[in-house]
Amino acid sequence: MSGSKKVQLHLNVNNEDMHVLVESSKTLLEVLREDLTLTGTKHGCELGECGACTVLKDGKPVLSCLLLALECEDAQIETIEGLADKDQLHPLQLAFAQHGGLQCGYCTPGMLMTAKALLENEARPTRAQIREALSGNLCRCTGYQQVIESVEEAAITIEETENSAAGVKS
């Protein structure tokens, strides 16, 4: 049996406090998928090469396969399971669905989380900025073009929603 020591860990995942007893050698990816059954986060290499396991740690995209879970004590972790607000899909999710931003869907969770971080820092990114931000997320199906278009569409939707909300307030 593997002899790795078990350690108590506190994480906030998708706005829920989680206390979990984990083997100290486990990565954040393993804890999310195996201990917390959040299998929406995928893995394509477990070596930090493909981006499929991207989640947000304190708002920043991280490769969960390269991060020890213990490095995430008290951190705010966002995964694909928390991207929708209950039954309200995030504009990125809708845009990917509508514009062919996914095919097999395996890289999609990582792609969406990276894109979310991008749009939170840059409301209307240029194509070059989208390419830069998402270049660490590999996809073998789509050829990326419809992914880029999806991110652009989502940015427009978010901006329009915010503008109309601002309009209502004023």
Partner: peptide
């Protein structure tokens, strides 16, 4: 919108390792 799209964008599609 393809029929499996929403399941995929929410991470609910179960692949074999899931």
């Amino acid at each position: 919108v393809r029929i499996d799209a929403l399941s995929k964008v929410t991470g609910q599609t179960l692949f074999a390792d899931d």
